[in-house]
């Protein structure tokens, strides 16, 4: 089963290496990984997607808790979190076919980020599943390059496990 794990780490050199090394050495496979700043300059958020059974997920969480730079580990349950990913997609497109492609992209709220003489780049934000659908849709039209950020997420306010800000750091 696929799980999204959100990890708050101290913003220090090597913090990401420690997390990713722990995964590698214990044989846990990371499907997607995104790192970026948070509302605090000294804290970064690592969002990981892993495909594993529940007992292995528990072991992953416990092993991450042991890392000194790791401040908080929470699993984002499907349906209880807002999850997003951004993709940039280059499609080879002669001027005659642009209108058709733009019409397609509108279904996904994609934006034209760059326009060249024989190609264009779409920018699309959505759930990872939406991005996959968009990718499949464009593929027959000559998708030549793709970059995805990896998923990020935050628990919904309504979710029982929403982290309360005052508990993020002790």
């Amino acid at each position: 089963m696929r799980h999204t794990v959100s990890v708050l780490v101290e913003n220090r050199p090597g913090a990401l290496a420690r997390v990713s090394n722990m995964f590698a050495r214990r044989g846990f496979n990371i499907e997607s990984l995104a790192v970026g700043p948070t509302e605090r300059h000294d804290v970064s958020r690592i969002t990981l997607t892993v495909d594993c059974p529940a007992d292995l997920l528990e072991q992953i969480e416990k092993q991450m808790h042991k890392l000194v730079n790791v401040l908080r580990v929470s699993t984002l349950e499907a349906g209880e979190a807002v999850e997003r990913e951004l993709a940039l997609v280059r499609v080879s497109a002669e001027p005659s076919r642009r209108a058709e492609l733009i019409a397609l992209s509108e279904v996904f709220d994609a934006r034209v980020a760059d326009l060249g003489p024989d190609s264009m780049i779409f920018e699309v934000v959505g759930t990872p599943e939406q991005l996959e659908s968009f990718e499949e849709l464009l593929r027959p039209h000559g998708l030549t390059e793709l970059a995805r950020t990896g998923r990020i997420g935050l628990a919904r306010a309504s979710a029982s496990r929403a982290p309360r800000p005052q508990h993020v750091l002790r």
């Binding site: 090597g14 090394n21 000194v68």
Partner: peptide, 11 residues
Amino acid sequence: TGITLPIVKHS
């Protein structure tokens, strides 16, 4: 710190 990364509690 890199070489010892998997075998220390912290470094």
